[in-house]
Design a protein around this nucleic acid. Sequence first.
DNA 1: CTGAAAGCGCTTACAG
DNA 2: CTGAAAGCGCTTACAG
Lengths: 327, 327
Amino acid sequence: MGTRGVTIVDVAREAQVSRQTVSRALNGLPEVSESTRTRVVEAARRLNYRPNRAAQGLVRGRDITIGLVVHDLRNPYYPELASVLSRLAAERGWGVVLCDLGTDDAAAGARLADVLRRVDAVVGSVTPALTGASQSVPVVALDVEPVGSDEPAIAIDYAPGIAAALDHLVARGRRRIAMVDSSSTPSRRRLLYRAHLQRHGLAWDETSEVVSADTHLGGVEAATTLRRQCPDADAVLVFNDVIAVGVLKGLTRAGVAVPEELAVVGIDGLDIGTLVTPELTTLAIDRTALARHAIELVAAALGSPGDTAAGGARRVLVPTLVVRESS
Amino acid sequence: MGTRGVTIVDVAREAQVSRQTVSRALNGLPEVSESTRTRVVEAARRLNYRPNRAAQGLVRGRDITIGLVVHDLRNPYYPELASVLSRLAAERGWGVVLCDLGTDDAAAGARLADVLRRVDAVVGSVTPALTGASQSVPVVALDVEPVGSDEPAIAIDYAPGIAAALDHLVARGRRRIAMVDSSSTPSRRRLLYRAHLQRHGLAWDETSEVVSADTHLGGVEAATTLRRQCPDADAVLVFNDVIAVGVLKGLTRAGVAVPEELAVVGIDGLDIGTLVTPELTTLAIDRTALARHAIELVAAALGSPGDTAAGGARRVLVPTLVVRESS
DNA sequence: CTGAAAGCGCTTACAG
DNA sequence: CTGAAAGCGCTTACAG
């Protein structure tokens, strides 16, 4: 907020010219004499004048800005997304303002409210706060359930991918497949894992599931917990690649051979999976496609001509199993 | 740009009320009858009305937005920085718009120009384009040379850190220390490396230096090149952790024992360094401090009261050697 | 080359 | 509860 008093009229007075001359001088328009320009520039600097962007924007015409709301930018999933999204937005002349909710829920709400005031639309991970905010600007939710309302959103249908991952493990002779989740309330990914095991009559009990913090350090600990809690597990599906890489490391540290003794499969398809040894098998989500869909849905929601009919308000993405060395 | 004709007066006409009533109804102010409010909301939806943010901003008073310009958001160095910076900015009520220059230089210029129109100040990696732009808004340059002009900037003084890293390697008995750089024109880090070797009479020749692409894949290749080009190297300093992690992987793949046969030291202090095996020794840059300084310099440049005197326009950060397993 | 006028689209007092 | 007025800070024609 903080209004900062110095306006163009102050500069005009200081430089002894009219305010439109100030505007012209400062914007480098040709029809100003050198001496006047210098005087104006000096005056502006002396007063520490900064043009008010809102006023400039108002008169220059609308420019679109979208917000990108993420849970935690430090999960490499998001920078890749942000990178593509910002490129695609730039191609349309849109700006992107970043909103990293972080782990502190109290601050997150305020941060979200703040970003909503600055943007024409929001793309982001669904949170209760975001859902409530959909009154003020259009919201394109990322990674919602494939069924549900017809709000603009991108759903990721994990069912076939998780089936493929588990089938793959079974095909390689795994019989006791555990899961590391990122929250104590079962994620959709975990529910699909359970359903698949049950449907195929595969071994499962309470010890099959471990909850981890959503960091690679969490994964390292989860590996220990898993070995203690479910010693006969010969494979593990992990909520995401960040945790999975930690699990991999925890297992290696504990002298467990991956994949021989225990196979590991992550979800997301992050680059870091190719960085570790053994390389991580993963269920990859195409973040470029995700970003592209998000931008198109924003365009449709903003009513940009030619985008409205581009395929409905809800898109569905299907992850792909990428088999590497850890399974 | 794209002006989208629907304004508050259109809605007013459609709903048969005055425009200030529209404003009140849409902003949820109390003094509007329910029936009127409904009529206005309906009209607004029918016309697909979106309030013009610039106009709102103009009347509500100035709100500050800063731009964060980075080379490549996919290098984990930047998300950590962006994350902290956006948190600190939020604490001051500032917004952060993201500008990922990417690898395509042509597009980068346009993207930069675009972001400069939307922000009150810019924080970012120095590029020629950015330097030239410092006329329009204050620029706080990140990672400049410790000497130089008095523009607002944060310098990182690698000299003591690189000395410490090389001393550490020598203390561990290394006698032939190579370097992997990220560009063919020697980086400042490489120059410091050379100077230190020379000053201490350590072995060096052209084969000591390898150039790598600035990705971990580049690092993997660089490992091969290094082994071929400089087979007697027993240690290597790498331009950054992303490349270093690739080098580590390349060496492991080639059956080279790290650190026994060849020690590896990276620069940046990224989390991924603790993720790999062996864990990466690195020269860590405190990105939280970096972000904090950047925000303070922006505040000073914008003339926020109480910040101006907070310690001059140039800050210097000194990296710290973090010895882990790879050396 | 420089100034007076009009207006961008909204909100905030001020009347009624 | 609703409307008429004024103004946020700038730029863009339009005169001179």
